[in-house]
Design a protein around this nucleic acid. Structure first.
Length: 152
DNA sequence: GCCAACGTTGGC
DNA sequence: GCCAACGTTGGC
């Protein structure tokens, strides 16, 4: 089982919204590397660290689980923000997975907290210039993070 | 297939 | 709102 960090702007989609909806498709990813993670590697039951970006308190806001294998992202067929003119039903370009709410952190584990946590310096999210919206988290990083969350 | 120009991301 | 860093586009 793997762990992933998935970024979302809370003004677009927040952990609170996922808590309400319980489960949601992670549609709208328009980056090939992130798509490939979803399409080729993500498995049902994988842990998702739900990260809030571009907001007042940037950081890990909660924990979710991958709830489906990749399936075509419906928003690529619909006129609007995520429309992809080159995609067809027969040959979709973009894929997404579903994500199920697990829990909200009592307190956001901020990017500053992550930076200051021994052993988490290696997290992709901290790499300079990293803009990938989905990044793999190692088992070690996940365990270290968990140990800090539980002592909050 | 190179690479400059452009648009976007995202922390600060 | 700034701006560095990155991905994508498109002319050649």
């Amino acid at each position: 089982m793997s762990t992933w960090l998935m970024k979302s702007e809370p003004s677009e989609y927040s952990i609170d919204r996922l808590e309400q909806e319980k489960c949601s498709s992670w549609f709208g990813v328009r980056n090939y590397q992130a798509r490939n993670f979803m399409r080729d590697q993500m498995q049902v039951g994988d842990v998702v660290l739900f990260y809030h970006s571009s907001c007042k308190e940037v950081g890990i806001a909660g924990i979710a689980r991958v709830a489906s294998l990749a399936h075509p992202d419906e928003s690529q067929f619909e006129v609007g923000k995520y429309f992809e003119p080159k995609a067809t039903r027969e040959k979709p370009i973009w894929y997404c997975i579903d994500v199920a709410f697990e829990r909200k952190l009592q307190k956001i584990y901020t990017i500053g907290d992550i930076r200051a946590t021994p052993g988490l310096e290696t997290m992709k999210i901290l790499e300079k210039g990293n803009r990938l919206s989905i990044t793999p988290v190692t088992e070690t990083e996940y365990q270290i993070l968990l140990s800090y969350l539980d002592t909050e």
